[in-house]
Structure formats: structure tokens, C-alpha cells
């Protein structure tokens, strides 16, 4: 449990926002363009981080579903900015040894001739350390 608490503190520190400010309105999830693709939706990230229930979040694909579109950051009425928790959990995950979601040798198969560098760089930023 101490490990989990430590993890919770790290995630909250990394997110830089306070999950306790959430009033559980669900506007983040309502406005998320990718919410339908997520096992854990944005509002659950906030709540589960607050509870210290971080392991399931680390192990879900949902952390790779956030598009960084900032819609929830923009529209959250309480300044909780849920995407920051998704990012914090994702960072906690990919910083672990061998936990890269995208490896360099996977890239060539994914490329097409028009794909802008921006997409590749962003994917690396999001998927690996």
C-alpha cells in the first residue's frame, strides 16, 4: 500500500493539478472526442488517482487514447484538467524500464509517404521514453 500511495503522490505531483477539486460532473468525459475508445474514461482517471487506485490505470490502453486535444482541459469547470492525470499516469508507465509503447522497429510498418514528421515525433513523445 505504501508503494501505491507513493505512486499516487508521484502522479499527482507530475500532473500538477488537484484531483480533490473535482466535483464529479463528468464534463471531461462528455466532451472527450475519444472517450468511447477508452476503458477508463477521463473522469475515472481523476477519481481513481484520488483514491490511489493507479495500477489499473497503468495497465490500460486508455493512457494511449488521449489525443492531447485539450478539450477537457479547456472545459473543466473546476480547473482539474483531467488530461493532465492521463498524461501523468502515462509518463509514470513509460518511464519504467522496457515499458515503451512504441518501439523504433515498429515504425517503418506504420509509415506512409505523406505522414508528417509531427505525427511521428508526437507519437514518440506519447508512447516512449
Amino acid at each position: 500500500m505504501s508503494f501505491s500511495n507513493n505512486l499516487k503522490e508521484n502522479v499527482i505531483r507530475s500532473a500538477g493539478v488537484d484531483p480533490k477539486k473535482c466535483m464529479k460532473c463528468g464534463k471531461c468525459t462528455a466532451t472527450c472526442p475519444n472517450g468511447n475508445e477508452m476503458e477508463y474514461k477521463p473522469h475515472q482517471f481523476v477519481y481513481m488517482v484520488e483514491k490511489g487506485d493507479i495500477e489499473p490505470l497503468m495497465n490500460t490502453d486508455s493512457i494511449y487514447k488521449c489525443l492531447s486535444c485539450f478539450a477537457c482541459v479547456e472545459r473543466c469547470p473546476r480547473g482539474v484538467e483531467p488530461a493532465k492525470f492521463i498524461e501523468a499516469v502515462r509518463v509514470a508507465k513509460i518511464r519504467k524500464q522496457g515499458e515503451n509503447h512504441l518501439k523504433a522497429d515498429m515504425i517503418p510498418d506504420l509509415l506512409d509517404e505523406d505522414l508528417p514528421q509531427q505525427a511521428i515525433v508526437t507519437a514518440f513523445r506519447k508512447y516512449s521514453k
Partner: peptide
């Protein structure tokens, strides 16, 4: 140099 393409929302992510 490249900006990295996406702003990392993690507050402690500094190198990038």
C-alpha cells in the same frame, strides 16, 4: 531544434 510535436502535460517532464 524540434519542439517535440506535443506539449507534455506532465509538470515534471522537463528535458523534452
Amino acid at each position: 531544434q524540434c519542439c517535440g510535436g506535443a506539449y507534455s502535460m506532465a509538470k515534471d517532464e522537463i528535458a523534452s
